[in-house]
Simulated scan of single mutants.
Amino acid sequence: MRRGVFYSLLVLLTSFIMGCSDDEYVYPPALTELLSVRTNASGTIDYLLPDRSAGLRVENGSKYSGMVPDSIYRLVAIYEIKDAKEPSAYIYTIGNVIAPEPIGQEQLAGEMKTDPVNIQSIWRSGDYLNMILLVKAQNKKHSFHFIEAQGANQTSCLRLTLYHDKGEDVEAYTQKAYLSVPLKKYSGIFSEGDPILFTINLYKEGLRTYQFTF
């Protein structure tokens, strides 16, 4: 049986992983979004693919190289839209977003983990359910995934739970984690208006379920 691939908080929470690192740098008017990017045959970013608008050609994509060629990545980006007549994008910095396709609980290598987090925001856009989590961590790996309820593909309601394993880390500092749940694989299973129920274990409230629709 194929086991789920889990995603490390340490990789994610290096803040923005590319671009300017000067804390005093002042960005011009820019957008900060969770979005997708496309790479070209050379493994550099050539297009931004925002959830709610048309794709944008990237002016400085060669700055972001070393990626898998001809692929789609989910990232958080600070960027500016240039030239209103033929819009393009200039990226100032990008960071990782955890975005694995949900799996069934039977695919877990061990037991289900729902270590608590806090949530800054959660919203649906395009083919994704996005969230910014506030995680208490110090310096050890945290693992995340999205787990389907049993029979989730056979009902008119998609039920998902956040998997979070903090391992042996100490709850020392609050750090942001960016996650996106890919929903495209459910397009032939659920209909427009069907509910999406997403459950997260919060520090003070315990298990809380957020509701969205397809």
Rank of each mutant, 00 (worst) to 15 (best):
S191V: 06
I81C: 10
A84Y: 15
V68T: 09
S180I: 01
Y27V: 07
A172G: 09
R208C: 13
R208K: 15
D23M: 05
K176Q: 06
P69D: 03
L183P: 07
Y203G: 12
D169C: 08
E101I: 02
V37L: 05
Y178F: 13
E168H: 03
G43A: 05
E33Q: 05
E101M: 02
I132R: 06
Y73S: 02
P182L: 01
E86Y: 09
K113Q: 09
K185E: 08
T44A: 08
K204L: 12
L129G: 06
L13Y: 06
A109D: 10
V68D: 00
F146L: 05
V117I: 13
H164D: 01
I94G: 00
M67P: 05
E192F: 12
A30H: 14
I132P: 01
K140H: 12
N201I: 09
V11K: 12
E192Q: 12
A77H: 00
S125F: 07
T213L: 11
L35I: 11
I196Y: 04
V117T: 11
V135T: 04
T213W: 10
S15Q: 10
L202E: 15
S62E: 08
N118M: 09
D194Y: 13
N118W: 06
L158V: 03
I81T: 14
L183V: 06
N153K: 08
T32F: 06
L162S: 04
S156V: 04
L162H: 03
S121F: 07
L10Y: 13
P87N: 04
F212T: 15
A177Y: 02
P182N: 01
I78F: 00
G193M: 09
L160P: 00
E24L: 13
R57Y: 07
E86M: 11
Y64N: 05
L34S: 12
A41M: 14
T213V: 15
P116L: 10
G66H: 03
Q211S: 13
T32H: 10
V58F: 07
A89E: 03
R3P: 03
L197P: 00
K63S: 01
T199N: 07
V68M: 01
L12G: 11
N153G: 05
C20P: 05
S42E: 10
W123H: 04
H145I: 09
Y79K: 08
D127K: 13
V97Q: 07
S8I: 08
I200H: 13
E171L: 09
E33G: 02
F146D: 01
P116R: 14
V135Y: 00
G206K: 12
F6I: 15
A89F: 01
L134M: 03
R74I: 00
G167N: 07
I94N: 01
V37G: 02
S15A: 12
I119P: 03
H142D: 08
I119Q: 09
E101Y: 03
G167L: 07
N118C: 09
Y79C: 06
A30M: 14
A137W: 04
A152V: 08
Y73D: 02
S53E: 07
A109K: 12
T39V: 09
L179M: 15
Y25G: 08
S125C: 08
Q175A: 08
Y64L: 05
P182C: 00
E24I: 14
D46Y: 12
F6P: 12
L197E: 11
V170I: 10
R2W: 03
A137R: 10
P69S: 04
I81W: 09
M112D: 03
V117P: 02
V26D: 02
L179W: 13
M1P: 04
D165H: 04
S36N: 13
F6A: 14
